[in-house]
């Protein structure tokens, strides 16, 4: 049971970071008006939230030891899935027009 929980940890962390950044973006844009870009502060907040989300993975990596065998190593693979997903799905905070 504990093992299963650890397996879910990485993707769940992605889900949390994804929701938080998406929610933050929605809230920031709800206060803006028109098609213009949000200000520098808002952009920094979004990028910061993204980087914090990535950083949150690092201590968890230290928590979960590597084990031999792909299936047995699933918690660590799960962390990689979460980390890659966080990098891949949220990198637009750095490049796209915000609102």
């Amino acid at each position: 049971m504990r093992w299963l929980g650890l397996v879910l940890l990485g993707p769940a962390l992605w889900a949390v970071v994804f929701s938080l950044v998406y929610g933050l973006h929605g809230t920031l844009c709800a206060t803006a008006s028109g098609p213009e870009d949000l200000g520098r502060a808002a952009r920094l907040a979004l990028v910061g939230a993204w980087l914090l989300g990535i950083a949150a993975f690092l201590p968890v990596f230290a928590l979960i030891p590597e084990r031999s065998g792909q299936a047995a190593n699933l918690p660590r693979i799960g962390l990689w899935i979460g980390l890659v997903a966080t990098l891949f799905t949220l990198f637009p905070v750095t490049v796209t027009t915000s609102c």
């Binding site: 879910l8 889900a15 979004l46 699933l74 979460g82």
Partner: peptide, 30 residues
């Protein structure tokens, strides 16, 4: 591992059914 990834990721794409409702480009990009 692929199943694990699918189960979670598939909850992060619902807005692609709503790309034309007028959502900001950054959110669309996520």
């Amino acid at each position: 591992a692929a199943i694990l990834g699918l189960v979670f990721l598939s909850f992060g794409l619902w807005v692609h059914h709503m790309f034309t409702v007028g959502i900001p480009h950054m959110a669309l990009a996520f």
